[in-house]
């Protein structure tokens, strides 16, 4: 099968992951579940980066670096998300975003 078609199929899967992740991040109330939605969207970026490397420019390491950066973004997002969850729970006993409305304009 031609590589272009496979690339398009893989990128469609990646787009599906981004779409589902976005839905989760916007619709969930729990802070931890919102983080899971963001992780799922980043999972799609991971897949798209790998596919771009294999099908478009495997002689250059650029797409691989993009995947590494995405992995780091995931790790940072997890660490900071959990730190914020602990901080806001300790201060206000808040574990859902709907309860954290003090800065609402």
């Amino acid at each position: 099968m031609s590589g272009e078609l496979v690339l398009q199929i893989v990128l469609t899967v990646a787009a599906g992951l981004v779409g589902v992740g976005l839905y989760g991040a916007l619709s969930q109330q729990s802070i931890v579940m919102i983080m899971m939605g963001l992780e799922l969207a980043l999972n799609g970026v991971l897949l798209a980066g790998g596919a771009a490397w294999f099908f478009l420019g495997p002689e250059l390491p650029d797409a691989q670096m993009l995947v590494v950066v995405t992995l780091v973004v995931m790790a940072v997002e997890m660490a900071m998300g959990f730190a914020v969850t602990i901080a806001i729970y300790r201060a206000r006993q808040v574990d859902m975003v709907d309860m954290a409305t003090e800065l609402k304009g």
Partner: peptide
Amino acid sequence: LAVALGVAVF
């Protein structure tokens, strides 16, 4: 599988 499990999360 990746997309199905992603949907299952929510």
